[in-house]
Design a protein around this nucleic acid. Structure first.
Lengths: 226, 226
DNA sequence: CGCGGCCATATTGTATACAAATTGAACAAG
DNA sequence: CTTGTTCAATTTGTATACAATATGGCCGCG
């Protein structure tokens, strides 16, 4: 894509993911254009893309707001992601070669380094994790699958809650990657799919638990104030 | 969406699906704008959408062409569609109510009328078929699943080859819909998923066979000319 | 008071002018 | 004849002006 529309997309997306633009906030084209330092034209393009990724919702009268997701929505997204990344792993198992295995091992070593640092670097973990999943997706060799998953991965919630991972959970994630690599190396498609789907579902449950305790503590705050 | 960009989207899409714009054809914004009777701005918007549905491909230098799909690409799309529509059927089984069943029966009756006409009306069949699948998808109640499937259904090839369906194949399709309704009525999620996935996969094989004989006859033509 | 239509204002949609980038052809050098 | 380079023409990207539409408050009426 072109420069200005890239800037607009990256800027707006970043502000949504970081929470600077909170769920429900009204997004006006002109205001965003000022923020991004470009005109409305590239902003509009960026907004269409963000809408297709469900980071934005538009009312019937074409006004835009930052999407607010219910826990059900989030579970839905994780469920579909588990399904499709599972398929990607299955396909990758029958297509991967030695160099692909090697690349995955290098990437997963980065994951290991990130979690073994003290304190563990969540940012590096998330980045290496993203690379790992991207490599498998690329190996699956389905352009269409890539496009479908693109709208499911890297959602605001994921990135904001990555910081809630415990040391054990990070370690477990790293370990599951290792198991997946072994399954792929052996060409065991069914097992690779199972591991991947479980891996994603586990991520949801970590999130759901964090969400739960967040709600609980909010409730406690309410009581305290009352 | 707005009017002019809707016109642009519908017009260009129609010309791609009908084959008036053939795979590989270069698409220039200004030329399309003239064809659609609107300015480049809404055309650009329409093109972005078509690109996201893979009806268009863009080169690294942002020139656009009508996508040309290989048989593998098409199989890929059908495979993912089978997977996701299967999930939709599974979810629908546990959410559908009596009125939903009734709606499906009405729609499938339309399918029946279309194929029993003499000659069978393929256009009406395709439209009723589309409605049937849309109703199930809506019943599944996942906004995200709808969005994902949107880019997989109604692809050019499907509509052009619908006319290759034999009377038996049309009848079989109608019958499978009936089976699916029964599975949904009984709340048998697994069976509903299986029927739906098989239903879609069968559609691919009908297409693949037609494609095969098309290639064979083209080859025959070549030999004749030589 | 509450309700419903009307108008000023705010916001999005479209067209167009201009800027940047890419292409392809002419042409010079090897 | 091939290769590389330059430049005009084509095409896409961006900004901006203007048109269409939606919103929210105001006022009059019941």
């Amino acid at each position: 894509m072109s420069k200005a529309s890239d800037i607009a997309y990256a800027t707006i997306r970043e502000k949504i993911i970081s929470g600077e633009l909170a769920p429900g906030d009204n997004l006006r084209e002109e205001a965003l254009a000022e923020i991004c330092g470009v005109s409305r034209t590239p902003v509009r393009e960026a907004m269409r893309k963000l809408e297709s990724e469900l980071l934005l919702r538009r009312t019937e009268s074409q006004r835009s707001y930052v999407a607010d997701w219910s826990l059900d929505d989030i579970e839905d997204a994780f469920e579909l992601r588990a399904l499709l990344e599972g398929v990607a792993a299955r396909r990758a198992a029958s297509r991967i070669d030695a160099s692909g295995i090697a690349r995955l091992e290098v990437i997963n070593a980065s994951v290991g380094r990130a979690i073994q640092a003290s304190p563990p670097s969540v940012v590096e973990f998330l980045e290496a994790n993203r690379e790992f999943h991207a490599e498998i997706l690329a190996t699956a060799g389905s352009r269409r699958l890539e496009i479908l998953l693109q709208s499911l991965i890297e959602q605001p919630i994921i990135w904001r809650t990555g910081h809630h991972y415990s040391a054990d959970e990070l370690k477990r994630s790293h370990h599951e990657h290792g198991e997946l690599i072994k399954a792929l190396e052996r060409g065991d498609a069914g097992w690779a799919e199972t591991i991947m789907a479980g891996h994603i579902r586990r991520a949801f449950h970590v999130y759901a638990d964090a969400h739960q305790s967040m709600l609980a503590s909010e409730e406690a705050d309410e009581r305290k104030r009352a």
